[in-house]
Computed example of a mutant assay.
Amino acid sequence: MQSDKTLNRPSIIICTFLHPGYEAKLREIQAGMEEEGVPWSLLTGEELDYIALAHRGAHTSPLGVGVGISPAGMCIHYQKLPERQPLFVLAGEEDVTEWRRFGYNAARLVKGLPFKEKQTDEAGTHLDTTQLYASVREIVLKVLQEFAQGHGEVNTWSKTP
Rank of each mutant, 00 (worst) to 15 (best):
A91P: 15
G66F: 08
D128G: 00
L42I: 10
E28W: 12
R56H: 12
F102P: 04
T60L: 11
Q85H: 08
T6V: 15
A106F: 01
G32T: 05
F102A: 02
K80E: 11
G103N: 03
R9C: 00
S135K: 12
E146A: 12
C75I: 08
I29G: 04
V67K: 01
S61A: 08
V143M: 02
I12M: 02
K5Y: 12
W157K: 15
E28H: 13
P10L: 09
F102D: 06
G124K: 05
N105K: 06
W157Q: 14
Q2F: 10
A54E: 11
R27W: 14
H55M: 13
R9W: 10
F88T: 00
P161S: 08
V38N: 00
T129F: 10
E138L: 13
R56Q: 14
D121E: 03
A148F: 00
E28M: 15
K111F: 02
G32Y: 03
C75R: 02
V110E: 03
H126Y: 03
R108F: 01
Q145N: 12
A72G: 11
P39E: 03
P114R: 07
G92E: 07
I29D: 00
P10G: 10
G32Q: 05
L81Y: 13
D121V: 07
H77E: 07
K5P: 03
A24M: 13
A134C: 02
I139C: 08
E98A: 08
H19S: 04
T129L: 10
R101I: 04
I13V: 13
V154W: 02
S70P: 04
N105H: 04
T160M: 15
E93D: 01
K118Q: 00
S158H: 15
C15E: 09
L7G: 00
G45W: 11
A31V: 11
G21M: 07
R108K: 10
T130E: 12
L90S: 01
T16K: 06
P62M: 03
E36M: 06
A52N: 14
V96C: 06
L81K: 09
E83M: 15
L81T: 07
Q145Y: 12
G150C: 03
Q119L: 06
R108T: 01
F115E: 09
P39G: 02
H59F: 08
S61T: 07
H77V: 13
N155K: 15
E83K: 15
R108V: 00
G73Q: 04
Y22L: 07
V140R: 09
L109M: 14
S135G: 02
E138F: 13
S70I: 07
E138C: 12
E36F: 05
L42M: 11
E146G: 14
S61R: 03
Q30A: 13
L87S: 06
C15G: 06
Y50M: 10
A106G: 01
C75S: 05
T6H: 07
H151P: 01
L113K: 10
T125N: 13
I13K: 01
G57K: 08
K80M: 12
I13G: 02
P161R: 04
H77K: 04
G124C: 08
